[in-house]
């Protein structure tokens, strides 16, 4: 049902944790639905230098969180905003149809963290 890449990211999730002095934090989903993602990003000179996540959810939720953090790390804020759920799912060699909403959550979590960053840093830094 899951691709090897999904299982790899589920078994060995990258960038799990929290950033104490995060530049932005985004939390999406809710426990009622069985998925919560929290993303912390650290932005320096408009570049995402660090990103950490915590996820309550299924395999696909964990794997998409993990993949999304890898995809935005080292990118500029503008580049990170271009991240789509489709790209995350593709990078994982696809997701079962019923799990597509999980990849949507990963995109939303990154965007929420970036939005929080913009709110806290209206002039960029």
């Amino acid at each position: 049902m899951y691709s090897e890449k999904v299982m790899d990211h589920f078994e060995h999730p990258r960038n799990v944790g929290e950033i104490a002095d995060a530049s932005g934090t985004g939390t999406v989903g809710n426990a009622r639905c069985g998925d919560i993602m929290k993303m912390d990003i650290k932005v320096e000179n408009n570049i995402i230098t660090d990103v950490k996540f915590k996820t309550f959810g299924c395999c696909a939720a964990v794997a998409t969180s993990s993949m999304a953090t890898e995809m935005v790390k080292g990118k500029s804020v503008e580049e990170a905003l271009q991240l789509t759920n489709k790209a995350v799912a593709e990078a994982l060699d696809g997701l079962p149809a019923v799990k597509i909403h999980c990849s949507l959550l990963a995109e939303e979590a990154i965007h929420a963290a970036l939005e929080d960053y913009h709110k806290k840093h209206p002039q960029g830094e």
Binding site: D35, G57, C58, A61
Partner: peptide, 21 residues
């Protein structure tokens, strides 16, 4: 979440089930 728990157990050879969504 139940599915994550099941899949982690599966990786260790333990087969169960869950009532998660």
């Amino acid at each position: 979440e139940g599915e994550s728990l099941l899949m982690r157990l599966d990786l260790l050879g333990v087969e169960g089930s869950s009532g998660s969504a």
